[in-house]
Design a protein around this nucleic acid. Structure first.
Length: 574
DNA sequence: GCCGTTTTCGGCCCGACTGTTTTCAGTCG
């Protein structure tokens, strides 16, 4: 097994022990072993060969033996027995918000619940509500958790879908029978979550292409295998379709299967008004005699036949993009290369994995001019948040680093300050004033009413030290719904107080949602594409944030961290 | 299960919130 697989096994062991009601500290030992393994700088194989794994913090006798056995693919009865003694249904139930190991254990012991189906049944029959510790509210919460889970399980994060699609696209393009290969659908439109993966290939010989597709590694089931379309389901539950079309139809099919539906409706309407008929097969005159009016090489040819400039896939949502294209008002969308830095990044001072220097080096390697450090504040105790004294120490450390000239990348000293329940901030004003900038975020009391939550956040936005608002709605895509908050009112308050609203670029957040940005930017609202990086690799999440910007029609001018250093400095000092 | 030691056991990250209770257990961050 490689390091990544072993890390997963350690995490799985921790979960299984939890469900067995084991000593919580033993569980934590496996979790910290997993973390230590992930952060290992030296090669795992070398450490095992030279018998030095046990000297690394987090690996005692037991974990060293188990990791070694896994690495050498030797049997590990402890793990096998553990898996056998806890049903997979119980592990699944942990995904339901409000259900932890203890409640699951109780349901299993008292009512024999072994699966989500059982759970639904005992919740609906009223049996669950009879158990001590369970009442009507918790049962209602469990049932709504199950419903969400069903809806969620059909979709995947864009980030994961992109990773899964890459080898398939590359493989398709490498086939001798294939002229062109591309992803289509919501993945191509850069939507934050994706249902099925849609692939499209141009070829005159679809047979071998289909054969190759359905025999991909990881394919669990072939749900369709036809002459022009095949569908498969992968082991992880992701579904993928491949369509193979003749080369001269490729662009029309690509446009059609990229969608969205609303965009396609608008495009077909426009074609009709110009005397054409547009479909996935081609563009033809209304007299139905000629198929393609002109050969098209790429999508811009297609748009140009309809008298339009090329509309990028991410704007094709039927939200006024045709009108904008027609009047020459398509935005000059911000790109990944426009970024010159990022704010809202964590170090190991709070719950990040890497040191200040590591983070700055990584930012510099990305070619960035500046990096903002915003560790948690003290109310986020579980994240080892900083109190006033530790903030001051970190500011001094950052000032020294800047003065040392060790890096060309400038470091801004910031904080991710908790917004307390009443909307006040978690640190003394005197401390906040010493910082270069302040990100304010909600990390607690998610269940306030919309009115209270809106008032709370607006109070924080109005604080004179606030520079940016972090993850506005607290949503975790496919996992947790946003908390109730009036987004319009917060946007207006942010504009009035010259506060930036971040696009938290963690692939599971992408918050504030892109659907609000076009209007918000028109009101003068600025954003910052913030990776919320908890390690050096987390800086890469800005790519997902840029997707959200582009879907929100944003130009570089509206994105604070595309600004050059002197201008950023001036803004933060002003 | 790990760690550290005033060295082989005792402590390990804690507090808020919720829903269930009637003084607290479980979950979450």
């Amino acid at each position: 097994m490689d390091k990544g697989e072993i890390s997963q096994v350690l995490g799985e062991i921790a979960t299984l022990l939890e469900l067995k009601g084991e000593n919580p500290f033993k569980i934590r030992a496996y979790q910290s072993g997993q973390r230590a393994l992930d952060l290992l700088e030296e090669d795992l194989g070398t450490l095992i060969e030279t018998e030095r794994l046990g000297s690394i913090k987090g690996f005692g006798k037991a974990l060293t033996e188990k990791v070694t056995a896994l690495y050498r693919d030797e049997p590990l009865p402890f793990y096998d027995n553990l898996k056998a003694s806890v049903g997979p249904g119980l592990v699944e139930m942990l995904e339901i918000p409000g259900l932890g190991a203890k409640k699951i254990k109780k349901l299993h012991r008292e009512l024999g619940v072994d699966s989500i189906e059982d759970l639904t049944r005992v919740c609906q029959s009223g049996e669950a509500a009879q158990l001590p510790g369970f009442g009507p509210k918790s049962v209602g919460r469990i049932l709504s958790g199950i419903r969400n889970r069903e809806a969620y399980s059909k979709r995947h994060l864009w980030w994961a879908a992109k990773e899964a699609s890459r080898p398939i696209v590359e493989g398709l393009r490498a086939l001798p029978e294939v002229d062109r290969g591309k992803v289509a659908g919501s993945l191509r439109r850069l939507v934050e979550t994706v249902g099925d993966l849609d692939f499209l290939a141009a070829s005159d010989r679809p047979g071998p292409v289909m054969d190759w597709f359905v025999s991909q590694s990881g394919v669990k089931e072939v749900t369709a295998r036809g002459g022009s379309k095949s569908s498969v389901r992968f082991e992880d539950g992701m579904q993928a379709d491949l369509r193979v079309v003749p080369p001269d139809q490729f662009i029309f099919a690509l446009h059609h299967f990229t969608g969205s539906k609303d965009h396609n409706v608008a495009m077909r309407g426009r074609a009709l008004s110009l005397g054409y008929s547009l479909s996935e097969w081609g563009l033809r005159r209304d007299d139905r005699k000629s198929m393609s009016v002109a050969p098209v090489q790429d999508e811009s040819d297609l748009f140009s036949l309809l008298g339009l400039p090329c509309i990028p896939p991410e704007l094709r949502e039927g939200r006024g993009e045709l009108e904008a294209a027609e009047s020459g008002q398509l935005p000059h969308l911000v790109q990944r290369e426009d970024l010159r830095g990022a704010f809202h990044n964590h170090t190991h001072a709070s719950d990040g994995a890497h040191s200040l220097e590591d983070m700055v080096r990584a930012a510099q390697d990305l070619g960035w001019e500046y990096l903002g450090i915003a560790d948690h504040s003290k109310a986020s105790f579980q994240a080892n948040g900083l109190n006033e004294a530790r903030v001051q120490k970190q500011i001094e450390q950052i000032r020294r680093l800047n003065a040392s000239g060790m890096f060309s990348c400038h470091v801004f000293a910031g904080i991710e300050c908790d917004i307390l329940r009443d909307g006040s901030l978690d640190l003394e004003d005197a401390t906040l004033q010493m910082l270069d900038y302040v990100v304010v975020s909600v990390h607690s009391s998610f269940t306030l009413s919309e009115e209270e939550m809106t008032r709370r956040i607006i109070r924080a936005v109005e604080h004179p030290c606030t520079t940016m608002l972090g993850h506005l709605t607290g949503r975790l895509l496919l996992r947790r719904e946003p908390y109730a908050v009036n987004v319009e009112k917060v946007i207006d308050a942010a504009v009035a107080n010259h506060v930036i609203i971040e696009i938290n670029s963690h692939p599971q957040r992408l918050d504030m949602d892109w659907r609000h940005w076009r209007k918000a930017a028109a009101k003068g609202l600025l954003t910052s594409v913030n990776p919320d990086a908890h390690s050096v690799s987390g800086l890469a999440y800005v790519a997902a944030g840029i997707n959200a910007c582009r879907k929100g029609w944003l130009t570089p001018e509206s994105v604070f961290n595309t600004w050059p250093l002197p201008r950023v400095r001036e803004y933060l000092e002003g």
